[in-house]
Write a protein that binds this DNA or RNA. Sequence first.
DNA 1: GCAAATTCTTTGTCTGACATTGTTAAATTT
DNA 2: AAATTTAACAATGTCAGACAAAGAATTTGC
Lengths: 239, 239
Amino acid sequence: MSADPEKVHADIDEDGPRDVPRALIRLIEDEGLQVGDRLPPELELVRRLGFGRSTIRETLKTWESMGVVSRNKGAGTRLISEISRNTLRVALTIKHEAESLLRMQQVRRPLEIEAVRIATRLATPEQRRIISARAAELMAIYEVGEDWRPADSRFHNAIHEATGNPLFKQFIEQIQKAFHDIYETPFGTPHLGQETIPLHRPLADAIIAGDEDKAADLTATIIDMVCTATQKFSEAHNG
Amino acid sequence: MSADPEKVHADIDEDGPRDVPRALIRLIEDEGLQVGDRLPPELELVRRLGFGRSTIRETLKTWESMGVVSRNKGAGTRLISEISRNTLRVALTIKHEAESLLRMQQVRRPLEIEAVRIATRLATPEQRRIISARAAELMAIYEVGEDWRPADSRFHNAIHEATGNPLFKQFIEQIQKAFHDIYETPFGTPHLGQETIPLHRPLADAIIAGDEDKAADLTATIIDMVCTATQKFSEAHNG
DNA sequence: GCAAATTCTTTGTCTGACATTGTTAAATTT
DNA sequence: AAATTTAACAATGTCAGACAAAGAATTTGC
């Protein structure tokens, strides 16, 4: 077994990760750094991790663009989202043209419907109560005529929670975030989808009753209405 | 009007974007670079854009992590996804635990099914031909016993193209990328989903025939088989 | 004409220097 | 003594140069 001492030694020597991201994650975990904490300065990272500064900077800059850390000249680098060796970072690029608002809803549609189906099947009684409460809150705010969008987010969020799969929440939230980024910038915020709100009460009821098909149908209807509104809006603003 | 010559001059001087991403996007647009084309080498970018090499590299590395470009030592940097000044970049973080492989397939499922439905409705004759050809290629490679995964990617890619919505391709590809990142690292690559390949021929036929429901059913079957295999795999490797 | 070896090109990494800006501590003033 | 201003410090941002490593292209040999 010990026929090749050099190689054996090389393998044993391999206790440290060979690339910067791994080494950084390891340092963060070993140090027990939490969200909000500051990372060591770059020059200390150079010393402790054994990589060149530019190499380390490339990783930190990438993490910054992914929202893992925030970096400020003079201040330092802070952790702003959880990261561990089990965290995988994925980036999407969305082209924002006339049709992209519609395209986003087209992708959101199946995700939202599937999320509702799964939630209807799997939600615990506690989760169903929360969904119902959020729906009540949404309707109340809507009827008073206040800004219902935060309540709408909370309602859908409750559904996504109930799926037991955090990816649904993440994907849909990112789509919505991109949607609003595009939407608000060019021409103000006209409260798109207002007319879908009254449908949210029966949707909540269907979920609570465990009527998967009805819940899915209502969700489809809601998103289709948003699509129609989006389309009208796009046409009105682009030709 | 010419009360402040210095400032006027400064403003006129402002013909070039101040940060690297803008400058790069501008160059790509001006040059008319398409997906698949090669970017100029780093040193030429240094010369033409007027930034230091490390600064440019930080942007290119970030773009690589976002799937905008692919970079290879010796080769060069290629554009692998559309980018323009209207492109929005969004990042996801996926926590990879025992269940995350399954969770990813759970999210992929509705996306893939919807993509197939839309493709079946909207594909042009030319696109249907391509899908058919890819299916034939996939079956041929599969029967010979070679690595069918690249062909499988090309087949699904052809479907995503036919939706006319690039977001489907991006989302699903990123999920797959994350899946393989997790999958290959810990325990080698056991060709998951092998038994689904024979179903791809009838799937292609259904798409070409315009039978939306059948195509959707077959897709669901395929992904459910992958889910089952994933589950078995997870259990075998985690207890 | 083809295969192998060589050269060239391009990205990857490291080092060192300086600029810019936020932070902190000292000095000055009130 | 307290508050404000100022100066020193620390951290990231940028640039330049050198070499390593690996893919691509060319040349050489047969």
